[in-house]
Write a protein that binds this DNA or RNA. Structure first.
Lengths: 336, 336
DNA sequence: ATTTTTATCGGAAACGTTTCCGATAGTTGT
DNA sequence: ACAACTATCGGAAACGTTTCCGATAAAAAT
């Protein structure tokens, strides 16, 4: 069973292919009756315009590409849901690829997406260096891109970000106001802007409350990282009174190890996480965490991208910073 | 800055476009030196063959489409990781779309993927009815598809499935052997084969151990479903001794409500879930659950699809059923 | 009644490739 | 030395559309 092409329906009705094409696209230049006739017989024959051919000549696809590092943690999935919502409404389809935290794969992802002539890209960077030149090149070629979550100043594109500094400050302040001192910060992956900002927030909170600087331990974003650090702290008998972790996975990893060793949360050690994960509500005790407006991030990114697509050429990059929320739970309740 | 096409590099070297094309594709019919020269100058010019045009004529894309209902629960993401692994190795790129549990969106997803000329599709059905005719049509057009997780007999395609019956039986048996009686089954979404199979397993376990049939409550797959049912049971004061839920979300929802009302897990109520979610390890108490071999499902699906692509035309659909594991945790430990 | 406009359509080029067919020149065999 | 082959390349059709340009006939204007 071969593909049914525009020629088949043209032949069937003894009209030219231009006319059939017009039936599908033009608003004028075609009689209403012939249009209806064509549309109807096309339907009967099961004809669908081949978008590959269409792309080739129109140079646009009504497809949007999204590239994220992973989607195991419901953070990115929720963002994608938000983006998909507004994109679908505008008639765009969403193609998703995951880079697996590898910048090489990310590069390949973006390349295939571009090769498939997506009209725009929404990207969360895996590396803050490796592909920068490539992205600059893409932007020069006038391909609309908006970055979210992770971005670099160096790349002149639209971004939607989270105020990591502010919310890290709030989170730390929360611990301080609950009466905790001797707070340790477990940082995220090294060299990431977002890591640095959370760290800055942590430090600022101490300064603001005239406390001596808190201890900083380089950790990482994975659960194993948190487990490892907790174990080290126990081994060295350097148990802090409270922990502010750069994300939830790391916080939960640490919490588990501490619990296994008989420490009570929060009575012995209070813990606050970051980037509300699905787990936070269900751990024991439940984990206090900063929640990012995931759906909003997705929607805002999508809207920014659409704007950019429509005003191609003379669009000035914007950076939008969104607000979050601190979900206070059992892991950091007040000291008695 | 315009796209650089094959013509540009042909002109630059005073060769024909056929020769350039051959440089990129043929193994013979071209002198080694010219090939190297062409490849090199192509590189310098920044030329990349336009896959859209290539698709148009070759009718293949080296892209594979995956359609899943969602990816918030790490079940599908892990499967996709597995699939991506083997597909990347074979030079395929993976395009992902989410149907959001809507068969209309699923339909649109598949259509755009097909329109984009993916070489094959990996799909987890959202509805067991609505799109059946459409899928049959696609198969008639010789488009390779493999279904996983959810599938229907009616569609003659390859499938990789889980033995829901067997593992529901094991899970129930586990509760029985731990000494629990008066076990209630919270079923999944109505009418799904997978729901029926888990139910059958639950019943079979009772028969096998010569117990009176267990109580069955129609529930659903979401956390709210579990919460609702638990609340109802409490209101009616019909507290069971143990629960086998059709999935983890539902199990956790119920567990939370019971806990809030002062019931102890497992001392008052034991609980077993299904389809190991990331949460299971971290709830309090940790949740016993049947783990599906997610990565394996992805890999197997991909391999099946590749086989099918290579033997297009004379390929007989296979159904592969994979094995799981029962992760015993605190929520179902032995009665004292 | 003749000219001008309008509505509707067909022809053909274009998008960027691949691939079949044939041309040319050099190489081998007899 | 002549036929037959081989290696290497160019020309052109094809993939399935869109779109520009022009053609035709009917409608409107003069």
């Amino acid at each position: 069973m071969k593909h049914i092409t525009i020629k088949d329906v043209a032949k069937k009705l003894n009209v030219s292919i231009s006319t059939v094409s017009r039936a599908f696209n033009d608003k004028y230049d075609i009689k209403k009756e012939t249009r209806d006739l064509i549309l109807q017989t096309a339907q009967e024959l099961g004809y669908r315009p081949n978008p590959i051919a269409r792309k080739l000549i129109q140079q646009r696809s009504f497809n949007i590409g999204i590239v994220v590092p992973e989607f195991e943690n419901s953070f990115f999935p929720q963002i994608m849901l938000g983006a998909q919502e507004v994109l679908h409404n505008k008639g765009y389809q969403v193609l998703i690829m995951q880079s697996n935290y590898s910048w090489e794969i990310e590069r390949k992802n973006v390349e295939t997406l571009v090769d498939n002539m997506v009209d725009g890209l929404i990207i969360s960077l895996t590396s803050e260096k490796q592909n920068n030149e490539y992205y600059k090149e893409l932007l020069k070629q006038d391909i609309p891109i908006v970055f979210f979550n992770r971005a670099v100043d160096e790349i002149p594109a639209s971004k939607v970000l989270f105020d990591d500094f502010k919310w890290a400050l709030f989170a730390t302040e929360h611990l301080i106001m609950q009466g905790y001192r001797d707070i340790v910060h477990l940082t995220g992956t090294h060299n990431l802007t977002l890591t640095k900002n959370r760290l800055r927030g942590f430090e600022q909170a101490h300064r603001k409350h005239k406390l001596p600087p808190g201890k900083i331990i380089s950790c990482g974003f994975k659960m194993e990282d948190g487990e490892r650090i907790a174990q080290e702290l126990i081994d060295r008998n350097e148990i802090p009174r409270a922990i502010f972790a750069a994300n939830d996975s790391c916080a939960i990893g640490a919490m588990n190890v501490f619990k296994q060793h008989g420490y009570k949360i929060p009575n012995d050690i209070a813990i606050v996480g970051f980037t509300e994960s699905k787990l936070a509500k269900h751990t024991y005790p439940s984990l206090t965490s900063v929640e990012q407006p995931t759906r909003d991030i997705g929607q805002t990114s999508a809207n920014l991208l659409l704007e950019q697509i429509e005003n191609k050429g003379f669009f000035v990059p914007q950076t939008i910073i969104l607000n979050g929320r601190l979900n206070v739970r059992d892991s950091s309740i007040k000291i008695k």
